[in-house]
Design a protein around this nucleic acid. Structure first.
Lengths: 127, 127
DNA sequence: CTTACATATAAACATATATTGATGCGATAG
DNA sequence: CTATCGCATCAATATATGTTTATATGTAAG
């Protein structure tokens, strides 16, 4: 029962549903999600941590970046995530996706600090 | 998205999961649930109202009693309820079921006010 | 070695949710 | 008609959750 409660609590917040939807098609690093949601980083980290605590996300460290992705390692979570993601409309996250695309594009074009050997730098903080 | 959030919020509280489990096999009136959970009635009413607001319960008025039952009228809710009820173990609600059985038995035997210190009510379901 | 960067964590604060005790109200038995 | 029962609702309080600002940690770049 505790696990179940954990999962439902994690799912009962708009920001967190948006994060799940953003991760629908693959992993993202924190700065990607921060940009997509247009929120301050500690806030995003907080929600990522809640989702992770509920076992809905896992993370992977790579250099100074941490990439998060959906964790649907058991059948219940898989079904739940699938259902949730299918119920959330693209409209719900249209703005998020737009900001994400912009941010990723910037990253690719090495807009700032990233070195030209485009090794997946998470760099793009323009200043 | 709003409905979804509503549903998850409703499901993210222990008392409410226990109520759902209690209603697994059919409707109950508020006083049944109060007895089963061994909680004060306003508290139970509060949680019933949350579940109802999320569309997970419906109620039926009969005389001065109100009977609540699961509402799995759409496919998503049906899936969720089914899954939740199957994940919750009988162990999670063993005490609740026990108290409920006792209470229902009392009701049946018309064990209404007979001793001076018997403040039980809700009896005499016979008509 | 120093700086900048990505992210986490902590403390203070704000908001939302749950709990309790009191009261209200419709229905019914007497 | 009046007392009582079953339940809802409200106001006050307690607790949990989310948000913000500031700071810490580890890593890579210069």
């Amino acid at each position: 029962m505790r696990d179940l409660l954990h999962i439902f609590k994690a799912l009962s917040e708009e920001t967190r549903l948006r994060i799940l939807k953003l991760l629908e098609h693959g992993e993202l690093c924190v700065c990607d999600i921060v940009s997509a949601l247009d929120m301050v980083q500690p806030k995003v980290s907080f929600h990522l941590n809640v989702l992770k605590g509920a076992g809905l996300l896992t993370d992977r460290k790579q250099g100074r970046w941490i990439h998060y992705r959906l964790d649907d390692s058991d059948i219940f979570k898989r079904f739940l995530l699938l259902t949730v993601l299918s119920i959330l409309t693209e409209d719900d996250v249209a703005d998020d996706r737009k900001r994400l695309q912009n941010f990723l594009k910037k990253k690719k074009t090495g807009d700032t600090v990233s070195s030209p050997d485009d090794k997946k730098g998470c760099g793009g903080d323009s200043r």
